[in-house]
Each structure stands twice: as structure tokens, then as C-alpha cells.
């Protein structure tokens, strides 16, 4: 997955070095595979089992139990989940909120990080850490007032409210990460642009944004999964089933299709696929995003 280059292989072939090398290479030992093959299989087994359940028919599960392996393939679960469970609509809602939320979060935090990192704003470190602190607060302390505020603004039970709330809560973290990145952009570039007469806005648009693409991509991948996977904010500001994103809709479906395990499994898989796709496409950025703030 990530680029891990800890081993420096071309070492001198002295007896001692070779001995050390042999001892320090667990990856070459068969025992690693003996242990890791079953562990890896065990680790993905829940996903595989849910996959099995999702392609079995209701009758098959009813007669042979959930634990049995599929005897034939049936897409009954997926069809029911999409048609009766309203998965299309929920998936659409999730995508709208995620797209809007990721875009707005990144836009707002990019400008904030630019201001804080490249200008002599007084108390900028305090502002930065306070913003980060906002993201670390337990969401529970915000739920009741946020629900009341959206209500008094007349946006309770709208996708707009959900998007805005996601942005507000995430902004502190994204600003913090982008600040760290923008601060380290080479000063010469800014010097050159200033000599060319570019203003602060122009410099942001033409220089800072393009240069920040790698960290924006990392944050984009990370925030996509966060917003898409959210449940608690959706349950706080939404009431009508029509507006539920996929996570909330799935739990809702549990009520209606509680005994149809194939439908539940199919729905759960469908909800997991978009973030899995994002992960596999942006694996490197995703992992580097997770590591933000942990480097020594």
C-alpha cells in the first residue's frame, strides 16, 4: 500500500552484516505467511460472508440458515433493497451531501489556511488550534443546540442543513492540515509572484491552489468517506425518510426488512461500495491524510 522503504538492501556482504540481515528480516520468513494468511482471511471474512448472504434468496436463507454458503445466485436482495428500500434515493442524497460538503469544506478551509499561513495575522497559532479544537469536541455536545438552530433558521430537515453542519464541524481539521502544508510552500515562488505584481487573491488562485493539490486530494478522499459514512448528524437534522442519506436509510430499512437478511446485506454492501472505490483509487492520499498530525 504505502511506500514503505525501511530496508536498505544493498548492504556490504560481510559475514556479520549478513547475519544481522537474516535475523532482521521477518518478512522473508515463512512464518509470517503462515500467520498472516489466516489472519487476513479472517479479517475479510465478515465482508465475504455479507457478500454471500446478499446473493442468496430469501427462501434459501429461511430454509438453510444464514450461516450456510450460497447454493445458487439470486439478486433478489439487491432488487428489493433498491425498489422497496429506497436505496437509489438514499444514495442520491448521500452523494449530494458528500459532494457539496467536501467542496465547501475544502474551499473554506483553503482560504482560511492561506490567510493564516502566509500572512502576519495576530494570534494565528491560537486561532488555528482553536479551530482544530472545534473538530475534536465530542459531537454530542453540539447535537441539541444544532438541531434547535437549524429549526429556528427554518432549514431543519433539509439536505442543505446536513451539508452545512458537516462543513462547520470538519472545517477546523481541514484548515489545520492545509495550514501545515501551505506554510511549507517555498517562499521564492511568492516572492517572484509579488514582483510580477500579483495580488493576494491572484496568488492564492494561481499559485497556492495548484501547489496544494496533493494535500487537497488527501483531504478530499478523507472527507468524502467521513461525510458519506456519517450517521449521527443525519439523525440530528433530518426527520423525513425521503431525505435520509444511505446510512440512516439502511438502519431505517432494518425496521421494514428486519428478517430479510439478504436485503440488509445487499443494502450494507451497496453503502460500503462508494467509499471502498474512493479508497482504492486514492489509497495513497487516503493513508497520508490519516497520518496527518502524527508524524514526529
Amino acid at each position: 500500500m504505502t511506500s514503505t522503504t525501511t530496508t536498505t538492501t544493498s548492504s556490504p556482504p560481510t559475514a556479520r552484516a549478513r547475519q544481522v540481515r537474516r535475523r532482521r528480516r521477518p518478512a522473508r520468513s515463512p512464518w509470517l505467511h503462515v500467520a498472516m494468511v489466516p489472519i487476513s482471511l479472517l479479517w475479510i471474512s465478515p465482508i465475504v460472508f455479507v457478500g454471500f448472504v446478499s446473493i442468496r434468496s430469501f427462501d434459501d436463507i429461511a430454509t438453510r440458515g444464514i450461516g450456510a454458503l450460497p447454493a445458487s445466485i439470486s439478486f433478489e436482495g439487491f432488487v428489493t433493497a433498491f425498489e422497496g428500500g429506497g436505496l437509489w434515493r438514499a444514495l442520491g442524497n448521500s452523494i449530494v451531501v458528500t459532494a457539496g460538503g467536501v467542496f465547501l469544506s475544502l474551499a473554506l478551509s483553503a482560504v482560511a489556511a492561506y490567510a493564516l499561513s502566509r500572512f502576519q495575522i495576530p494570534l494565528r497559532k491560537t486561532i488555528l488550534l482553536t479551530m482544530l479544537a472545534g473538530n475534536l469536541l465530542p459531537p454530542q455536545i453540539l447535537l441539541v443546540p444544532v438541531s434547535a438552530i437549524t429549526d429556528s433558521l427554518g432549514i431543519y430537515d433539509t439536505l442543505f442543513a446536513l451539508t452545512i453542519v458537516q462543513v462547520g464541524f470538519g472545517i477546523g481539521f481541514y484548515t489545520f492540515v492545509l495550514y501545515g502544508f501551505m506554510r511549507n510552500l517555498p517562499d521564492e515562488v511568492f516572492e517572484a509572484a509579488r514582483i510580477d505584481g500579483a495580488g493576494a487573491g491572484k496568488i492564492f488562485w494561481a499559485i497556492v491552489l495548484p501547489l496544494s493539490r496533493p494535500s487537497m486530494a488527501a483531504l478530499g478522499a478523507l472527507s468524502t468517506t467521513w461525510i458519506f459514512n456519517d450517521l449521527i448528524w443525519a439523525m440530528t437534522v433530518l426527520r423525513t425518510e425521503d431525505k435520509f442519506p444511505i446510512t440512516a436509510q439502511l438502519l431505517n430499512m432494518m425496521g421494514g426488512f428486519g428478517s430479510s437478511w439478504n436485503v440488509i446485506a445487499a443494502g450494507a454492501l451497496v453503502a460500503a461500495i462508494p467509499t471502498a472505490v474512493v479508497f482504492f483509487i486514492f489509497q495513497k492520499q487516503f493513508v497520508s491524510g490519516l497520518l496527518v498530525g502524527t508524524d514526529k
Partner: peptide, 13 residues
């Protein structure tokens, strides 16, 4: 891999 599955969906799994 499980990391990309949301907590809610993990629960369902």
C-alpha cells in the same frame, strides 16, 4: 479494508 466501511454499516455487517 474495514476502515472504509462506515461504522453504521460495520454494525449491520
Amino acid at each position: 479494508l474495514p476502515m472504509v466501511v462506515s461504522l453504521a454499516v460495520t454494525g449491520l455487517f
